[in-house]
Nucleic acid binder design. Structure first.
Lengths: 336, 336
DNA sequence: TCGATGTCATAACCGCAGCTTATGTCCCGA
DNA sequence: TCGGGACATAAGCTGCGGTTATGACATCGA
């Protein structure tokens, strides 16, 4: 297995120096973790209490499930289920592993919901246009909830910056839009569905990470930063906020995606200014640190928008109601 | 349970009806989502800006990466990268999909960290014993953080109920333990590292879900509930709290794992009393609803424990510091 | 006591997904 | 003009995960 052929030419495997993004151990993750099918099977067995029934539910044969489960246990080196002629019960370790697997599957479900919408044809029942920030961090959860509430609603998703979203909604190419920004685009009605804030973040090793006295706007404006490219909503807000303080300094790096900016900052390139939604996980895991900041308003509203006068109806109304319900329940959430 | 299973025997592969736990679309998820390897590849391409370099990092050949990426795009029906003789850049949709993929990979990393510890031999440098609740919801994140801070620390994990954890720590079979409960086990020193609370939860359709007036302790004590089995920490706390109000009624269902209890409640079996950590995701996604409760203290502390007098040192100290840092930063967090 | 039913395990066979090596094409920079 | 990097295409091979067919064991109900 693993090794197999080639002999991995150059790369003595040894993981290029250190650093990197923050990935954990050695070798590609996929070689060290069971695949999604195995995790799904485990969850099904946990729920149904029998290998055979789980197999049937997944549309595979009982021996296939049996073999797969055995392989899973061998690979993990732990007994997960206690087999008996009356069915299969999880062991303690099995319950543990199942819960961990559930997390993976939930994230995969969010992926699927998003991918499905992205592929959705333009004649779907509900056409959504969303800014990158909303689409990346919030939309998948909404789509799953919508699917549970109204199964069979075909959704299509177009992602772009806030201006593009506004245009699409105004032109009738989308039924509902989600934008982040300072003001409501002309010609559209809007409802605030959440709030976002830009944070100054650094790697834990950076001098700023240990600051107790808040950064001043002037300091921030004078420091070269890792930034999103011009034209992004994030950059707009920052530019506007720093305009009165000597404008932002020439960027240290200008990257086209939030992901790239995060990666650069994590690996120590320098401080970045990014959406709180985007860095929530990194902050929680300690891969990034938020730097306190004084005297600068970097908040912005997340809004749903639709053509002025045309109250959303049908699926659009359902989705809108959903987003507001979740905003009420909870702070900006990870995956959900 | 409820519907689903029963029928859908043969399943001509054509995806058993719908319903089920709350999973989304048709058929097994694994058939509709790219595998972990593909997601990892996408993330690597995003970071490195080239298919070939990503391939080298993952230890596969360039054509393999190229083909895989193409397959991924075909399957999703969306162009993810813009190829050029100078490298590959993500498209907007690519950035989106990459971020969604990152969530999956992060959950998989947590899985791996946990599984690795579970398999860890007893002669590891750091032997941890943890209650199920802590092991399920908090430990993987800590292990990842620990691994980043002190790579190469071999960790072994034993999971069990709080009493078993206390025994193992006292007997010197574990260097550090994590328990939830009302009091500190005798013979051990402890530090509070977080708080947990039991919540009364129901499916959104249940009458209690719409209650505005809080439930009284008496009502709760008189209602048959979905509960964890006797001996679990969760059950102990509830029994103790309801003892003064007529004790808990005979259980509606008594299940051996939190997962099973959640599943039963989600599918409408009846109200359950479960740890806030365990139901956070379901609450956020609206699959469960928390019922307000008055006049009953269902809080409990999460504690790290070690043999009295023996201050943790070495890796144990590192892990302990980490857990406290995270507890400070953040409320009980989902994944990492 | 004895089928009937349900569970899981074993055995033999097979197809396909994904890998490899070897090449081709394109573009850029020296 | 040429070297080098990046991606694509074209073979061929391996093995994982699937299938059917069967056997060994419990448990339930008459």
């Amino acid at each position: 297995m693993t090794s197999s052929a080639g002999g991995a030419p150059s790369g003595p495997g040894g993981a290029a120096s250190g650093g990197d993004t923050g990935a954990a151990g050695g070798g590609p993750l996929a070689y060290r973790v069971p695949d999604l099918g195995a995790m799904e099977l485990l969850i099904a067995v946990a729920r149904l209490g029998s290998l055979g029934r789980a197999a049937r539910e997944l549309g595979i044969s009982q021996p296939a499930a049996s073999g797969r489960m055995r392989a899973l246990e061998t690979r993990l080196g732990v007994a997960l289920v206690r087999r008996s002629p009356g069915g299969s019960q999880l062991t303690d370790e099995g319950a543990l592993v199942t819960e961990w697997a559930r997390r993976v599957i939930e994230a995969a479900e969010a992926f699927d919901a998003g991918a499905r919408a992205l592929r959705g044809r333009r004649d779907s029942r509900l056409r959504v246009a969303a800014s990158m920030t909303v689409a990346e961090y919030l939309l998948p959860g909404w789509l799953i909830a919508l699917h549970e509430k109204r199964p069979g609603t075909a959704v299509s998703l177009a992602a772009g910056n806030s201006a593009a979203v506004a245009r699409q909604v105004a032109a009738g190419e989308a039924d509902l839009g989600f934008v982040e920004g300072l003001d409501v685009p002309a010609g559209l009605d809007a409802a605030v569905i959440g709030h976002d804030r830009l944070l100054v973040v650094t790697a834990p090793g950076h001098p700023w990470a240990r600051r107790r006295t808040p950064l001043t706007a002037g300091e921030l404006a004078a420091t070269p930063l890792v930034l999103r490219e011009e034209g992004s909503g994030t950059r707009q807000v920052l530019d506007a906020a720093l305009a009165g303080h000597g404008g932002p300094a020439v960027p240290l790096l200008e990257l086209a995606s939030t992901t790239a900016a995060k990666a650069a900052t994590v690996s120590g390139a320098g401080p970045a200014v990014l959406s709180e939604l985007a860095v929530a996980e990194e902050l929680a895991a300690g891969r990034l640190t938020a730097v306190p900041l004084a005297g600068l308003a970097l908040g912005r509203s997340l809004r749903a928008v639709w053509p002025a006068g045309h109250r959303p109806a049908g699926p659009a109304r359902d989705l809108l109601a959903l987003t507001r319900a979740q905003a009420r329940t909870r702070r900006p959430a990870p995956t959900s």
